[in-house]
Design a protein around this nucleic acid. Structure first.
Lengths: 114, 114
DNA sequence: ACCCACTACTTAGTATTATTATATAGTTGT
DNA sequence: ACAACTATATAATAATACTAAGTAGTGGGT
């Protein structure tokens, strides 16, 4: 799928958080995972900039480990703040998804709004 | 719902396109519609910048009409390109929505990828 | 020994988008 | 005259994903 760039903003970071929560992982692996999922155009650089951001926001713990195949890997784990951020992310996503369905179906029912 | 800003990128424009397709409308009305939908923090300025962009991209036709309640309104209609853009938008959204569901459920089934 | 492919991380600069803040202006009611 | 509501415009800012280039380690083939 092409031209997902703008739609990814505010979403891709959440995807990366979710992937990390699924088990300790590192940048290169996350990139391959996203490619296999169908996000073909995601390259390492994009993922690494997100990982740097997560570190700056203090949402992750990092551990460097040797690899048999190449340079050392930087493994990421979510800390408490990271888990919280991830939950908030899915709440926002659920809200948007619901609204988008309403919008697509042309509903204008206001009664469900909180 | 707060903090939707980043998640809106690449989505809000599509929402506005959809609203316009639902019938000739104008900026102020679109803003009120979004507020009623539950996007409380959307203000006029945000919508007008999107409308200016749609005009620059030549996705809309514009007609100025008098209002009984205030200054003249600028009514927007989708042209052929606008309709096409809207269809592409919903395709991207459907793709992303499907992938997000996979990601949330922790699936790693690659067989459905095209 | 040399090159290539794959693994793995880094980062400065760019483009796009939504938001903030402020300004202008018409209409109606008090 | 003033406030409230309707209605549009736009320059500046912040956040994000992407581009493009670089550095490094390992293993296989020639």
């Amino acid at each position: 799928m092409k031209d997902l760039t703008e739609m990814f903003k505010g979403v891709l970071e959440g995807i990366v958080l979710q992937k990390i929560q699924g088990g300790e992982t590192y940048g290169y692996e996350i990139t391959r995972y996203l490619n296999e999922l169908g996000f073909e155009d995601i390259v390492e650089g994009t993922v690494y900039t997100i990982l740097v951001r997560l570190e700056k926001k203090e949402l992750v713990e990092i551990e460097k480990k040797k690899s048999e195949l190449g340079p050392a890997r930087k493994f990421y784990k979510l800390n408490e703040q990271g888990v919280e951020k991830l939950n908030e992310f899915w709440q926002r996503w659920a809200f948007l998804e619901e609204k988008m369905t309403e919008i697509k179906e042309g509903k204008q029912d206001v009664s469900t709004n909180v």
